[in-house]
C-alpha cells in the first residue's frame, strides 16, 4: 500500500502540478489565449449536453473507420503478396518508400479540385495517410522471413495456401501491427486534415468554428476530446502490437 503510494507519488504529484498549472495560468492569462481547466470542462459539458459533441464524434468516427478499414484491407494483403512475389516487390519497393516519405497532406488540394467536398474524397485522404505505414511495415516484416522457414514448409509439402496460413501471415503480423499503430496516428491526422481543408464536418469542424468564434474554451474542449481519442487509440495500437509480438521474444 505505502509502497505503491511511493511509486505513484511522482505521477500523482505531476498530474496535480499540471492541473494546477493549467488552472492558475488560465486564470491569469487573457481569456483569448488560455482558459483554465475548470472552464474548459464546463464548456465541454455544454457542448456535450447540446448533443453536438456526439453528433460530430459519430461523423468523425465514420470517416476515420472507413479510411482506416480500407487501408488495412488493401495494405496488409498487398504487403504480403509483394513479400511473396519477389520480382514485384523489388520492382515496387522504391515507389512505396517514396510514397511512405511523402507528406500526403500536400495532395489534399488536388483531391479537393478533382473530387469535391463529399465523403469519398475525405475517406480517401484518411486512406492515403494510413495505407503506406501498413504497406511499408508489412513488406519489411515479410522480407525478413527466414528462407529456411519457407523451405521447411516446402519440405513438408505444404500447399501455397497452407504456407500462407502457417508461415507468412503469423510471421508478418507483428510487423504489420507496428504499421497499424503508425497508421492510427497518421490516420487521425488525415481525418482532421480532411475535416479542416475539404469540408468542415466532425470534430474538426468543432475546433474550427470555436477558433473562428474566438471561443478559446471551445477550442480547448475539442482538443481535449481529440487528444483523449488519440491517447485511447494509441493504447489500442500498442496492445495490438504487443498481443501479436509475443512470439518475438
Amino acid at each position: 500500500m505505502t509502497e505503491s503510494l511511493r511509486r505513484h507519488a511522482p505521477l500523482l504529484l505531476s498530474l496535480a502540478a499540471g492541473t494546477a498549472l493549467w488552472e492558475i495560468a488560465g486564470r491569469r492569462a487573457s481569456a483569448a489565449f488560455l482558459v483554465p481547466l475548470s472552464e474548459t470542462l464546463v464548456r465541454l459539458w455544454e457542448i456535450a449536453a447540446s448533443g453536438q459533441l456526439w453528433e460530430q464524434f459519430v461523423s468523425s468516427a465514420a470517416l476515420f473507420l472507413t479510411g482506416f478499414a480500407l487501408a488495412l484491407a488493401i495494405g496488409m494483403p498487398l504487403g504480403m503478396l509483394l513479400a511473396r512475389m519477389r520480382v514485384l516487390r523489388v520492382a515496387l519497393e522504391p515507389y512505396i518508400m517514396i510514397l511512405y516519405a511523402t507528406p500526403m497532406v500536400a495532395l489534399i488540394p488536388f483531391i479537393l479540385s478533382l473530387m469535391g467536398f463529399g465523403f469519398a474524397p475525405k475517406a480517401l485522404v484518411v486512406f492515403l495517410f494510413a495505407v503506406f505505414p501498413v504497406l511499408y511495415n508489412t513488406i519489411e516484416g515479410a522480407r525478413s522471413i527466414k528462407p529456411e522457414l519457407i523451405e521447411v514448409a516446402r519440405s513438408f509439402r505444404s500447399s501455397e495456401w497452407k504456407l500462407w496460413c502457417d508461415v507468412m501471415v503469423p510471421y508478418t503480423l507483428p510487423f504489420a501491427m507496428t504499421g497499424v499503430r503508425q497508421a492510427i496516428g497518421r490516420g487521425l491526422v488525415g481525418m482532421v486534415a480532411a475535416e479542416f481543408f475539404l469540408s468542415a464536418t466532425g470534430l474538426g469542424q468543432l475546433i474550427m468554428t470555436a477558433g473562428q468564434n474566438f471561443d478559446t474554451g471551445g477550442v480547448f474542449a475539442a482538443i481535449l476530446v481529440i487528444g483523449l481519442i488519440g491517447v485511447g487509440l494509441m493504447r489500442v495500437g500498442l496492445m495490438l502490437e504487443q498481443r501479436f509480438a509475443r512470439w518475438r521474444d
Binding site: R7, P10, S14, I207, G211, I226
Partner: peptide, 29 residues
C-alpha cells in the same frame, strides 16, 4: 526514473494528440 514517472504521461499524451488539432489554438496565440 523520477522524471520518467513525472513526465512520461504528458509526453505520451502530447505525442498521441494529432498535431494538426492544435493549429487553431496556435493561430489564436
Amino acid at each position: 526514473p523520477t522524471a520518467d514517472r513525472m513526465l512520461r504521461h504528458y509526453v505520451n499524451g502530447f505525442y498521441a494528440v494529432p498535431m494538426i488539432v492544435i493549429l487553431p489554438l496556435l493561430s489564436l496565440w
